[in-house]
């Protein structure tokens, strides 16, 4: 069964770009343009990995990751940041505390992103 990846980004074009890339490599994808939409969709469907933008209005990527970790049903989900934020802005401690598996910088290299997603979902 194909692995399913959720992309959470307030930029619709970015969501569409990552969806096209991953679908072309055999993944199923689902997109959410806000933290709230992501939480709603995560409760409705099973995903194997969530790629989260760091800077989002209303609920930031960090806040979304914290909400997921605090939710009994979602707390074990695999999470990664996909962001323009610099490593220093995200903070290593936050990555560790929130159990973030990877931190991928935008602009990303297509092959590199696919390779890292595969690694995270265990393909």
């Amino acid at each position: 069964m194909a692995k399913k990846v959720m992309v959470v980004d307030d930029e619709p074009d970015l969501c569409e770009t990552v969806k096209l890339l991953l679908e072309g490599k055999g993944f199923e994808t689902v997109a959410a343009q806000s933290g709230a939409e992501a939480l709603k969709k995560l409760k409705e469907e099973r995903v194997d990995l969530v790629l989260i933008d760091f800077f989002m209005p209303e609920m930031t990527g960090r806040a979304l990751a914290a909400e997921i970790r605090a939710d009994q049903k979602l707390k074990d989900l695999k999470l990664a940041f996909l962001t323009v934020a610099l490593f220093g802005e995200v903070g290593e401690e936050d990555l560790r505390e929130l159990g973030i598996l990877d931190y991928i910088q935008k602009p990303f290299d297509n092959e590199d992103l696919v390779r890292r997603v595969k690694k995270m979902v265990g393909e």
Binding site: T17, L21, G24, K25, F108
Partner: peptide, 24 residues
């Protein structure tokens, strides 16, 4: 600047590459 310039550049770079790689 980093955010505003890199954000639109990300889909541009990725999609052009995807097209050249015949992904689309």
């Amino acid at each position: 600047t980093a955010h505003e310039l890199k954000t639109p550049l990300t889909p541009m770079l990725s999609l052009v590459r995807q097209m050249l790689d015949r992904n689309l």
